[in-house]
Write a protein that binds this DNA or RNA. Structure first.
Lengths: 338, 338
DNA sequence: ACAAGCCGTGGAATCGATTACACGAGAGAT
DNA sequence: ATCTCTCGTGTAATCGATTCCACGGCTTGT
């Protein structure tokens, strides 16, 4: 593979001049510029990003550590992150933690070893000592979706508070009183917040949230399945199961189907996160929708602000309720099943 | 950030010795080794992967260019690729082409600029000149899922031939005769093959596949929607629509629902690619399932074989038919809707 | 006792870029 | 005509690692 020296030789100039042309430094004669361009073309030369990074101490690369690639929510997030980063001249390296703190740390470490310019994280747990160190060390960093409390790092996320209130009000209006939730890990902020917001909304309607109606999940399908099985085996099972993310809703659906029960006649279901498939499940699922694209873009902008020395901004965007028919809504939507 | 020099100074040895300890070269005294380890620990030193790559001319990084991150099939593929790569000591940088050749080329170029050790590609088109150049230049490369004919590059893919035959036989047995297909782009091998296999299977059953029953899609949901709308507006619409990937099946479902029609009573549906949501759609979708995990792992193994100088192996794995109830199957599966 | 070999170690070259500094040539000022 | 300034260019240092080579001190064989 041709190096800058080959280009210099071919163009009959020094490597310094080649470098100046490549970086469009003003002080190069038109003639030299022309010859360098010709040589670059002739040799199919492409600058070695590794060498460049070593010298300039910047990689123009951002690291993104997401909790789970199989979760369409994070996939959508990753896509908008990559898009915005590309628009700003950065690439993105994605690390998938699979909701496991060790794997998250592994990725953070390799990303740092590669000297990425900044880190976007959606922490799988609430207190990764490594992440704390990294933050203290001054690495440009932004939290997306989830965050770690007590660190001075910008956070870009959606606020589900109001949407959860709306959801509970909606369920109450439909006549449901026994509402259960499949929570995310207590170690994640989103895990906690969604339960808390749910509990508060219940209280506002004078409803109790007994411990038996709080299933402990980990944001993965299997845990949703287990929690739902447990709900269904209760002497007084809930009328509605609210899953704190879309994968646990998938698991809940699996459990319900395995019992031969029907949604929403036997039990209703709702989910945090809206995904395209929720329109076509049997029945379509009432869900809380996050502005994923805007979240990803805002996170990249905040991170690049830090990297380039501008003051970053934390962003909180509202989530919204999307009513469908999985909670016994009377609906005339074409194609719904009853 | 501490460098190897700082470690050397702290340990009272030369950088050469530090490097030897780091790379577990045998010829270092136990005492020096101990002191270096202590210094590494004390300084929290981590080797700079950028510098190391420059010197050794290897990055221990693989590039993966996939056609669409929003497609659960590719997401699952990416996950298994990353997993296997990690097990073999490599990291993976994912580039998302969004089914757009220019974006694919952009990613290939940046990946190459970063001097990745090898490239895994699922080409968005059938003849990217860039990809051809890269292959000719001798960059270690493996095709996954899709490939470009006429280049001597290992291919790791699933063969849907037999599964499509089974599908058509299954549909025929159910009494269906008017079968339509939403094809992928003709520029992709998977796009072509699936239509060809379908056409052949139809012929084997003495069935015609009129042009009007071949919808041209691009593996994205919207095109599935448009093709299906067209099918439904035909004077003699098909009884079954077979989508060549899961996203186009999603689009087909959208179109059917928008018309207020019911699956499978009014029209049946089947898809290439099986995803977890197909169990819970209304009704559950009959699909062809690929061994995604094994595909990803085999692709990484083939690529690493090339990178490390061993002879690589092309791999073709069979896909299988998963019968559910979206084509009018009489079924007693609990929870199915009828 | 001396030659030969091995072992642990450090010095220095190297990878491919960027960039501070020096220098010579030509333009403009006085 | 001389001085100064600017402009285009090249030389060489530098980033942080790896690795070849040389060297001094021991062990081993004869």
């Amino acid at each position: 593979m041709a190096s800058i020296k080959d280009v210099a030789a071919q163009a009959g100039v020094s490597v310094a001049t080649v470098s100046r042309v490549l970086n469009s430094h003003p002080s190069v004669s038109p003639d030299a510029r022309r010859r360098v361009h010709a040589a670059v073309e002739a040799l199919g030369y492409r600058p070695n990003a590794v060498a460049r990074s070593l010298r300039t101490d910047q990689t123009r690369t951002l690291g993104l550590v997401i909790s789970d690639v199989l979760n369409p929510y994070f996939t959508a997030l990753a896509r908008s992150v990559e898009e915005e980063a590309r628009a700003l001249g950065y690439s993105v390296i994605i690390g998938n933690a699979d909701e496991r703190p060790e794997q998250q740390d592994h990725h953070v470490r390799t990303l740092l070893d590669r000297r990425i310019d900044g880190l976007l994280v959606s922490p799988a747990d609430g207190e990764s000592p490594l992440l704390l160190d990294v933050a203290r060390a001054g690495t440009p960093m932004v939290f997306v979706d989830r965050w770690i409390p007590g660190v001075d790092i910008p956070v870009v996320r959606a606020d589900g508070h109001r949407a959860i209130q709306e959801l509970v009000a909606h369920l109450y209006a439909l006549g449901h009183r026994r509402l259960a939730i499949i929570a995310g890990p207590a170690a994640t902020t989103t895990g906690n917040e969604r339960v808390e917001a749910f509990r508060e909304a219940m209280r506002a309607h004078g409803l109790a949230l007994p411990d038996a109606y709080i299933g402990q999940g980990d944001f993965q399908a299997d845990s949703g399945r287990r929690a739902t099985e447990h709900f269904l085996s209760l002497p007084d099972p809930p009328e509605i199961v609210f899953a704190a993310d879309n994968l646990m809703a998938l698991g809940a659906l699996d459990a319900i189907r395995a019992r031969g029960l029907r949604v929403p006649e036997d039990i209703g279901i709702a989910a945090f996160d809206d995904i395209p498939w929720f329109v076509h499940t049997g029945p379509p699922i009432t869900a809380i929708s996050q502005p994923t694209g805007e979240l990803g873009r805002a996170a990249v902008r905040a991170l690049v602000d830090i990297v380039e020395g501008r003051p970053p901004q934390s962003v909180t965007l509202p989530a919204g309720l999307v009513v469908r028919s999985s909670c016994g809504e009377r609906t005339s939507t074409p194609g719904s099943n009853e």
